[in-house]
């Protein structure tokens, strides 16, 4: 009789313990669909990746579809090469899509946003995303703003918003959309 009660109590303990593990696993933690084997890898080159780290999210229209697998530097062009794992179920992303490095909120962590293009062909394992847009670097924007203000002081005829893009220190294709990305937040 006594040992029956003991068994019941221990059984109860193990049950709620295991239940708690299940709650933590399935109710509290989000399920990582990505990385469970069904992925393919693509790369993208950026002039500047800002504070992007390994494991950062890759999103399309705000939905997470993959993650950053690794970051290295191209020895010839000195660009950052980002390896991206994308969920295999998203195998219809147009080849001419654009990868942008975005920031979640003003000070939040950075992630890669994919904007679909119009190509018939789609990305597959080993593809490279040709169109990229570098990280939004706050210091550069402030620098540009200061330059434009001093120029405005010298030459009051010059319209204010235009020079913000023009004297950018970085190469044009990467930096020009970077400034455009700012108001999108």
């Amino acid at each position: 009789m006594q040992s029956r009660a003991l068994e019941i109590l221990v059984g109860f303990f193990v049950c709620i313990g295991v239940a708690a593990v299940f709650v933590l696993t399935f109710r509290v933690a989000s399920q990582d669909h990505v990385g469970s084997g069904g992925i393919y890898e693509v790369t993208a080159k950026f002039d500047n990746i800002g504070a992007l780290t390994r494991g950062a999210a890759v999103k399309m229209a705000g939905v997470k579809i993959g993650s950053v697998k690794g970051i290295s530097i191209d020895p010839k062009t000195f660009q950052a090469v980002v390896a991206i794992d994308i969920d295999k179920t998203r195998n219809d992303i147009p080849l001419d899509s654009t990868a942008k490095i975005m920031t979640a909120g003003l000070l939040g962590e950075q992630y890669i946003g994919l904007e679909p293009g119009g190509d018939d062909q789609s990305l597959q394992n080993g593809s490279e995303i040709k169109f990229t847009q570098s990280a939004f670097i706050l210091e550069n924007i402030i620098g540009q703003l200061l330059v434009s203000m001093t120029q405005k002081g010298k030459d009051s005829d010059s319209p204010a918003p235009a020079p913000a893009n023009a004297p950018a220190p970085a190469p044009a294709p990467a930096t020009a959309p970077a400034a455009k990305a700012a108001p999108a937040k």
Binding site: F13, V14, I16, G17, V18, A20, V21, V23, L24, V28
Partner: peptide, 17 residues
């Protein structure tokens, strides 16, 4: 060995839940 991980999970669920 069996008890501590189970108790830890119970603790976590109680604290968050």
């Amino acid at each position: 060995l069996i008890s501590l991980p189970l108790l830890t999970a119970i603790f976590a669920v109680m604290a968050i839940g």
